[in-house]
Design a protein around this nucleic acid. Structure first.
Lengths: 247, 247
DNA sequence: CGTTTCGTTGAAGAGTGTCAAGGCCAGTGG
DNA sequence: CCACTGGCCTTGACACTCTTCAACGAAACG
């Protein structure tokens, strides 16, 4: 995909049916006929520069967003001002589902690199889904998948130690990159150590130390934000390892 | 509501339109005409004795469940055999949303006291929602609310210390009991200290110590599973307090 | 090129976990 | 009615992981 071309297309008609993410994104499992109708929902794209905000907690909810390219984080701010990252989002993922519950967003979502999203007006999505049962079914699956994902994060935060959390995080990223056709062994972290730490319930120093330790054990190679997974099996082994101690 | 009567009704026709939870549960915001149609979806009830399982991870997903009375927990088992509680469910709440994503459940859900649920066959729900837009909209809101709730748990697990977590937990229970017409200051914990700890990412000893400490500070009174909130403001103050340290 | 943000590493300390002992309570059977 | 049992809870002492604080170096940016 040509990035320069994407820039120009921003003002053109958007078409899911031509999108290379259609197997991953909203229209998954739709017939081509149904796909044509989805094209009528997703009308516009929106660009967000690195550091800019897609929506903020409290903003009125009127659209979902499908990430077309780029990388975002969602964050919550607690009563005491502490920022918690609740998720990282990459191409093909749907963002903004939290807003459905009360017609306003409940988290901030910020681009970690220059990003482009497809805007999916929610009212129109509701209208169309009445006559597009497959789309409706799929949307529910997307939401359910988000619930399951968060269960996984709860497991991670509630019962793993620092290095287990980081190993799980790296393997999860690896898998998501692979599903998008990128290398599963070599990728760039778009977020800072502090953001990883926030997501994993750790301090940035702990993240840094754990990464160094992994590198020392030849599980990974790290150069700043660039990560190469050297021994995926070794990382995976870390996840089950605490069984020995706790049993 | 008469519990003995509920027992007998189990074999009778179930009707949302007569249910005292209808303002809290699936049919929220539906007209009485629409409500009559929902009655055709929710056909049966199911009783689960304390300790029995409603569904297990891996079970085929074919129904959602609305809790009519009782109390349940959902748990995940990690690779190393560690059990993590992902949620507690009480009357009026919808359980099983995780199963939609892959047509099979991803967690175990167990009754913590004798419990009764309304069975909502998912296929039928899908059929009906095609012609009941209000129901569809509401179901999406329920799912979105679950996503938002889990964001809150991530915040709790990721950035709070033991006593803050417990304070947040008690205040959350208090609020949910109040919404159901029970006392917000006095209630019975249906789960063990270990289950609270699992949910909050703490060990049972830590939970016990924190409860004792709260009691000593006259924030609450504890007698086994019976809890009375003496100073709700004091508990709430605990939540924001770490700002002083972390900033 | 200076400034700022980000990352690494060390040392010390706080907060929880771990282990262990004992108490309370409900249910069971003598 | 009482002793016994097992599950649940409390409390103390100690160990350990992670955080905190601090200093420094490297990369990114205007």
């Amino acid at each position: 995909m040509d990035r320069a071309a994407a820039v120009n297309m921003a003002h053109l008609r958007v078409a899911c049916s031509n999108c290379n993410l259609r197997e991953l994104c909203l229209p998954i499992g739709l017939s081509s006929e149904e796909l044509d109708r989805v094209d009528q929902i997703v009308a516009t794209r929106r660009k967000i520069r690195r550091g800019e905000v897609l929506f903020r907690a409290g903003d009125r909810f009127d659209s979902l967003y499908a990430v077309r390219l780029g990388f975002l984080k969602s964050t919550l701010v607690s009563a005491d001002g502490h920022e918690q990252v609740t998720g990282f989002h990459m191409a093909g993922e749907i963002v903004g589902l939290d807003g459905i519950s009360a017609d306003s967003h409940t988290c901030d979502t910020t681009a970690l690199e220059d990003t482009e999203v497809c805007v999916i007006p929610y009212e129109r999505l509701e209208e169309f889904s009445a006559t597009l049962p497959a789309l409706q079914t799929h949307l529910r699956k997307v939401m359910s998948r988000e619930i399951v994902r968060e269960h996984g994060v709860m497991l991670l935060l509630g019962s793993m130690r620092a290095e287990e959390r980081l190993a799980a995080f790296l393997l999860n990223l690896s898998q998501r990159f692979e599903a998008r056709g990128y290398s599963r062994t070599e990728f760039v972290l778009r977020m800072t150590r502090a953001e990883i730490g926030s997501y994993l319930g750790l301090k940035l120093e702990t993240v840094s130390r754990a990464l160094s330790h992994f590198a020392q054990e030849s599980l990974i190679a790290v150069d700043q934000k660039h990560v190469r997974i050297v021994n995926a099996e070794g990382l995976r082994a870390l996840l089950g390892s605490s069984a020995l101690k706790s049993q």
